[in-house]
Simulated scan of single mutants.
Amino acid sequence: MSGAQVITVDGPAASGKGTIASGLGRRFGLPVLDSGLLYRAVGVLLEREGGDLDDAAAAAAVAGRLTAETLADPAFRTRGAGEAASRVAVHPQVREVLLQLQRAFAAQAGGAVLDGRDMGTVICPDAGAKLYVTARPEVRAERRWRQLTGQGESVSLDEVLADIHRRDARDSGREAAPMRPAADAALLDTSEMTIEQAADAARRIVEAARARQAP
Score class of each variant (00 low, 15 high):
Ala85Gly: 13
Ser86Glu: 02
Ser86Phe: 02
Arg87Glu: 05
Arg87Ala: 04
Arg87Met: 08
Ala89His: 01
Ala89Met: 05
Ala89Tyr: 02
Val90Trp: 04
Pro92Arg: 10
Gln93Leu: 15
Val94Glu: 08
Arg95His: 06
Arg95Lys: 09
Glu96Gln: 15
Val97Arg: 15
Val97Gly: 05
Gln100Lys: 15
Leu101Asn: 10
Leu101Pro: 06
Leu101Tyr: 11
Gln102Phe: 06
Gln102Gly: 02
Ala104Ser: 13
Ala104Lys: 13
Ala104Val: 10
Phe105Asp: 09
Phe105Lys: 04
Phe105Ser: 04
Ala106Ile: 03
Ala107Pro: 00
Ala107Phe: 09
Ala107Asp: 15
Ala107Asn: 11
Ala107Cys: 03
Ala112His: 10
Ala112Asn: 02
Val113Trp: 05
Leu114Val: 01
Gly116Glu: 07
Arg117Met: 08
Met119Asp: 08
Met119Phe: 03
Met119Leu: 13
Gly120Arg: 05
Gly120Ser: 09
Thr121Ile: 13
Thr121Gln: 10
Thr121Arg: 13
Val122Gln: 12
Ile123Lys: 11
Ile123Met: 13
Cys124Pro: 01
Pro125Thr: 12
Pro125Met: 13
Asp126His: 15
Asp126Ser: 14
Ala127Lys: 02
Ala127Val: 07
Ala127Arg: 05
Gly128Tyr: 08
Leu131Pro: 03
Tyr132Thr: 07
Tyr132Phe: 15
Tyr132Arg: 02
Val133Met: 04
Thr134Ile: 03
Ala135Asp: 00
Ala135Phe: 05
Ala135Leu: 10
Val139Asn: 06
Val139Lys: 01
Ala141Asn: 12
Ala141His: 07
Glu142Tyr: 00
Arg143Glu: 06
Arg144Leu: 08
Trp145Asn: 13
Trp145Ile: 11
Trp145Val: 07
Arg146His: 10
Arg146Leu: 15
Leu148Phe: 05
Thr149Cys: 11
Thr149Phe: 06
Gln151Phe: 04
Gly152Lys: 06
Glu153Thr: 07
Ser154Pro: 00
Ser154Asp: 15
Val155Pro: 12
Val155Lys: 14
Ser156Lys: 15
Ser156Pro: 08
Ser156Gly: 14
Leu157Asp: 11
Asp158Pro: 13
Asp158Cys: 11
Asp158Ile: 07
Glu159Val: 05
Val160Gln: 09
Val160Arg: 11
Ala162Gln: 14
Asp163Ser: 12
Asp163Leu: 10
Asp163Phe: 01
Ile164Gln: 13
Ile164Thr: 08
Arg166Lys: 12
Arg167Cys: 03
Asp168Gln: 09
Asp168Glu: 03
Asp168Cys: 06
Asp168Thr: 01
Ala169Gly: 08
Arg170Ile: 12
Asp171Trp: 01
Asp171Leu: 09
Ser172Asn: 08
Gly173Met: 00
Gly173Val: 13
Glu175Leu: 14
Glu175Gln: 14
Ala176Ile: 07
Ala176Cys: 12
Ala176Thr: 12
Ala177Lys: 07
Ala177Glu: 05
Ala177Trp: 03
Arg180Glu: 09
Arg180Asp: 10
Ala182Ile: 11
Ala183Val: 08
Asp184Met: 10
Ala185Val: 11
Ala186Met: 10
Leu187Lys: 04
Thr190Asp: 00
Ser191Trp: 00
Glu192Leu: 14
Glu192Val: 11
Glu192Asp: 14
Met193Trp: 04
Met193Ile: 02
Thr194Lys: 05
Thr194Glu: 00
Thr194Leu: 03
Ile195Tyr: 02
Gln197Ala: 14
Gln197Cys: 01
Gln197Ser: 07
Asp200Lys: 10
Ala201Ile: 00
Ala202Trp: 01
Ala202Ser: 04
Ala202Arg: 06
Ala202Asn: 03
